[in-house]
Design a protein around this nucleic acid. Structure first.
Length: 379
DNA sequence: ATTCCTTTGAAGCGA
DNA sequence: TCGCTTCAAAGGAAT
């Protein structure tokens, strides 16, 4: 590693790489932005409110899982396989307190047998396996820039679980590699970083919504004459407008049962194109990182005062890698639900249907290859 | 007008 | 099975 003075990050980063003082300054300033963002996020979204959010989130998750179970949408075997496939990335969905696994009693008519760490557990349905619960890592990996890096625990400032799921740790001394990304994150030594995932559900304690990416369950006020007015169809689904009956058509209140509303016209265009061919373009469900990205992007953009998504995504990517597994697990679980929902909404659909539909410019391709591709697309 | 950039994870595809 | 490619989101930048 570098022989630079790690106690003076601004001057030691790094002797082996030529960096102008301006670049160094900019990089450090950038990190201050990120640190400030995270601290502000921690301050503004604190304690009890988030606790309720977590409980709500867990309740919704458990409810959905129970429903899936009762409907036999999946089995214990499926779940175990899924957990095993994801290795240790699926500690239990419950978040606070981090002490006992979640137990869901199966319907009386079922006499399920599930495997636990200690052997066979009968007549109980457990999510997830306690094995993963107890082995969930209790420390965060410090953020790092790029491979090759040896990410080691910082014994001077061990990771600690703060209120709810705040995670405090000290980043390692700043490092550059020869493959530094365009937007390198350089972490000044001894600077403390507080990462807090967005509260779930996004609406906070008072929210009446469980916001899955592909399904927003809206609880309308019980009275006040709100009604759902069918106003058309979108991708084979009825599109409703929530209105004060019988007048006041307000397009801002539109909602639909699924995800096929896109704010970006470019994406709408793609959907339209596919529909014109007789088949709607069904997007693939988002993975865990995409859900995290979608939630935290607005805050990052706001705090960094930039609209450059590529830069923001790089920052969020570093944040994601810094999240402890038990926090990531919430997003993996949410992504799993998204996928289940997607399967139900689009039976028989596979990601292969979208494969190769996007037209990309490809670097370093021969003109012959590009010609072949163009011929393919024109078919 | 269209594609790239940039991230991680899931899945398809060809060898 | 393995390694590579594509696509999910997003919006400014590049083509």
């Amino acid at each position: 590693m570098s022989s630079g003075n790690t106690e003076d990050p601004e001057n030691s980063v790094y002797d082996s790489i030529t960096l102008t003082p301006a670049t160094k300054k900019e990089v450090l300033k950038t990190w201050e932005f990120v640190d400030g963002l995270l601290r502000e996020s921690l301050r503004s979204d604190r304690d009890s409110e988030n606790s309720v959010s977590s409980e709500k989130f867990n309740a919704e998750i458990n409810s959905t899982l129970q429903e899936e179970f009762e409907n036999k949408n999946w089995t214990n075997g499926d779940n175990m396989e899924d957990l095993l496939r994801k290795n240790q990335l699926l500690p239990p969905p419950l978040l606070t307190p981090y002490t006992s696994p979640v137990w869901l009693a199966p319907p009386q008519s079922h006499t399920n047998t599930v495997l636990t760490q200690g052997g066979v557990q009968e007549h109980m349905f457990m999510l997830p396996l306690p094995t993963f619960t107890h082995h969930a890592p209790l420390h965060a990996h410090p953020p790092f820039i790029r491979a090759p890096l040896e990410v080691t625990s910082n014994t001077n400032a061990p990771f600690s679980l703060g209120a709810q799921h705040d995670h405090v740790f000290r980043p390692p001394p700043p490092r550059f590699t020869h493959h530094a990304p365009p937007f390198p994150l350089v972490l000044p030594a001894v600077q403390q970083m507080i990462i807090r995932p967005p509260a779930l559900p996004a609406g906070g304690a008072d929210s009446q919504e469980l916001n899955l990416h592909s399904l927003s369950i809206s609880c309308l006020p019980p009275d006040e004459g709100i009604c759902c007015l069918p106003i058309g169809f979108l991708n084979e689904e009825t599109l409703y407008n929530a209105v004060h009956a019988p007048l006041n058509v307000n397009t801002s209140n539109m909602f639909t049962h699924s995800s096929l509303l896109f704010a970006d016209n470019r994406h709408n265009r793609r959907v339209r194109d596919r529909r014109d061919e007789g088949r709607p373009y069904v997007k693939k469900p988002p993975n865990a990182f995409m859900l995290f990205l979608k939630e935290i992007r607005p805050k990052v953009m706001s705090e960094l005062n930039t609209n450059k998504s590529a830069m923001v995504n790089t920052v969020v990517g570093e944040m994601w890698k810094s999240l402890p597994a038990e926090v990531k697990a919430r997003y993996f679980e949410k992504a799993r639900l998204e996928q289940k929902l997607h399967e139900q909404q689009h039976p028989g659909w596979s990601t292969g249907e979208n494969y190769g539909k996007k037209r990309r410019r490809v670097k370093n391709k021969t003109s012959e290859q590009q010609q072949q591709e163009q011929q393919q697309y024109s078919l």
